[in-house]
Design a binder for these strands. Structure first.
Lengths: 266, 266
DNA sequence: CGCGGCCGTTTGATAATCGCAAATACTTAA
DNA sequence: TTAAGTATTTGCGATTATCAAACGGCCGCG
């Protein structure tokens, strides 16, 4: 049979690059492993995976220590490069530091990519206790519907993108408060647009609340968001519904001004 | 002529992955660009580069905004993941923060990979002035011979690796003080081993000094280093040659203890 | 001591893929 | 409208990736 008979339509892609991505993902999820272990997660031969690993080591994406393969520090340095190229990060990380100082809680600077939230920067206020969760959230892009920062962004995206993202949401329940259907989410998003800030009332993690505000660009397009996260015991009443929202919005506005004013050399 | 006649020996590699790496590098160096611009840096056809870019976008390594291609935030999140998997980072970043508080200067936590230094973490003390250089050093792996942290690592690497790295050094002169030949470097490294700490006296950047100490693992293998960097005006006399070195070594030792004690769950 | 099992590595062969050239579509400017 | 610049698609031949199978190294066990 001919090659074309497989019904292989669609735009053309480089299969080897997709395979390499699979290999990288496998290493990432296993937190490093031997050739045999990595191969087990991939529908490929040991020999093939071996060739990919050698190539990725050459290119610096993977390191090898004995028979353990791990992701290379190149991801750290390129990641740093990407952050420093991002106007939102350059304009915002100092403000987010100050917000952490003023509130004493964890603060985050968030961007959106492919319908997920990306933590560009995290700052820890003096009352913020060590948590494991903040590692997870920085490592893996989270959904946009169950965090304050995510909802703040989602609320201000262009309608078409918003609809597209909502349509692809899985609404996995994290806590009793997680929003689990599209209608409820849309209502909440309308509220957020009216108020100018988003709340997360133990919707992602039990015992944790958060306040988020969008950072808008010149043409009202949302470029990201800022948020404050802390235990429900400290985020209550007036502080949760008025004082902290005011501070978060103020920070977001300051970042907006910097974004429009400052020239980030390119 | 037949395909085999090219004398293509050497270990087998996936060419498309190497090409994808070239594409990523081109985007990185141009700080993003159009298809035409990226193609100009690569000995490939526009059509070919186009297919690679589409693939990389699919895989999340590249984002597209209109006709501008940029590296994706996936590098940020994977980079974060790699850092959090690194024992040295988990054991050291708090100590490096404290060192910054105590000295008031920039402090760094450094690892080594492929003969270059990688900035795992940077902390800014209250007297540390904003610098552009610290962005550069975090983005691009630096050589090991012209920084305090680098020399501290190099001094304690196993002889074979050290010789290998020194043999591949280019000794590019950065300032009047840069060490520019292997003999001089070896002498300095011997001193560093005797003293237990490394100095950088305006060898990388004019006006900047630094003190670095190695972080050693259980079997005396070096796993990284810690350093303090500041203007020569503040790092002088006793402070440069005794007080700060003492603090840097203390921090490195604390990290060593944490590394041996703590169980980083895997 | 030698054997079996379990790694990682190499290799031959061929189906499948990549990469170029050229054609096509899409945008903007004049 | 044409023109000139983009980005995208496609046909096709040379190159390459992939698998199976053989190889080599290491450890533990009988």
């Amino acid at each position: 049979m001919t090659a074309g008979s497989t019904g292989n339509d669609g735009p053309r892609r480089i299969k080897s690059v997709q395979t390499a991505t699979d290999v990288i993902d496998a290493i990432k999820q296993q937190q490093g492993g031997t050739l045999a272990e990595i191969t087990a997660d991939l529908e490929l031969t040991k020999a093939t995976v071996h060739t990919y690993l050698q190539t990725l080591v050459d290119c610096g994406f993977v390191t090898r220590d004995g028979d353990q393969y791990r992701l290379g520090f190149q991801f750290v340095t390129i990641g740093e490069h990407v952050r420093n190229e991002t106007d939102l990060y350059m304009a915002g990380h100092n403000e987010v530091d100050e917000l952490a100082e003023r509130t004493g809680e964890y603060t985050h600077l968030i961007a959106e990519e492919r319908g997920r939230e990306v933590v560009l920067y995290e700052s820890r206020g003096e009352f913020a206790v060590a948590m494991d969760y903040h590692l997870r959230m920085r490592e893996t892009p989270q959904h946009l519907h169950d965090t304050a920062a995510g909802k703040a962004i989602l609320a201000h995206l262009p309608v078409t993108r918003r609809d597209e993202i909502i349509a692809n949401l899985e609404f996995e329940r994290q806590t009793a408060n997680t929003i689990t259907d599209a209608a409820e989410l849309r209502e909440t998003l309308a509220d957020i647009r009216d108020r100018g800030y988003a709340l997360n009332d133990e919707e992602e993690i039990r015992g944790m609340r958060a306040v988020g505000a969008p950072v808008l660009g010149p043409t009202e397009t949302v470029v990201g968001s800022v948020s404050v996260t802390g235990p429900t015991s400290r985020l209550q009443g007036d502080r949760f519904h008025s004082a902290v929202p005011k501070q978060v919005i103020e920070t977001a506005n300051l970042i907006e001004v910097t974004l429009e004013t400052a020239q980030f050399d390119r």
